[in-house]
Design a protein around this nucleic acid. Structure first.
Lengths: 115, 115
DNA sequence: AGTATCTACAACCATTTGGTTGTACGTTAG
DNA sequence: CTAACGTACAACCAAATGGTTGTAGATACT
């Protein structure tokens, strides 16, 4: 179930791509696929080229893929990459769970703070 | 179980804070707590001030908190914020699941590709 | 008291980001 | 063929990032 060993640089690209509201919106809109870049661009108050750059950032991060369809490029979200990002956070939570369960930590915590 | 309604700006801060290997490492090291800023700084090949800035970025994102202890500031990871980030990605995955389950999508997918 | 340690913060700098406009090229429609 | 559309990419610009050094204030040690 663990897909990982993304490099630090790849993880940087991943989270950086997600750190922008427009890009997160594009990811959601591209889940169904079938949206061209200009189709996506029409939904935002910025130039086509700006949206094109956002899509490129998402593409570099592996969050979307583009497939040519005539003169358009159809954008589709790669849900597996979203899943990898979620797993990275799960790993941190797992680390938290395992470390907090040590006796020394439990003794230092208030009774209600263990969960 | 849903904790959300983080603003777009807060989500930006969250993912941006996670988009740096040094900061992700600090988050992991600060899970147990008890590390001062200079303690953390000694582990990286950069100045104290640089690490201090990284901690400030994490603090603004709500990923760590600092508590004064004499002349030091002890840094501790706020696991709830990590959880919020994970939930944001889960929401996207949920969106994917719900949309992909529409008939029009199912018809276009290979039998084994629906899960 | 005097010194060393930990932190905060300002100033500075090179690079990256996120936006713009303009140009060029492939593809579709008349 | 010509015109319109969708895309790619370069050049440019202001602002943010990620690093540095230097200065100053609190706290602890002897």
């Amino acid at each position: 179930m663990v897909v990982d060993t993304l490099s630090d640089e790849q993880v940087d690209l991943l989270f950086h791509a997600l750190a922008d509201a427009t890009r997160r919106d594009i990811v959601k809109r591209a889940i169904r696929g079938g949206h061209s870049v200009s189709d996506l661009a029409s939904g935002y108050a910025m130039s086509f080229a700006a949206v094109q750059k956002h899509v490129a950032v998402l593409e570099r991060a592996g969050l979307v893929t583009k497939t040519q369809n005539g003169r358009e490029r159809l954008v589709r979200t790669d849900i597996a990459t979203i899943n990898q990002a979620a797993e990275l956070l799960d790993e941190i939570e797992e680390l938290w769970r395992s470390r907090v369960s040590r006796m020394s930590d439990l003794l230092a915590l208030d009774p209600g703070e263990t969960q």
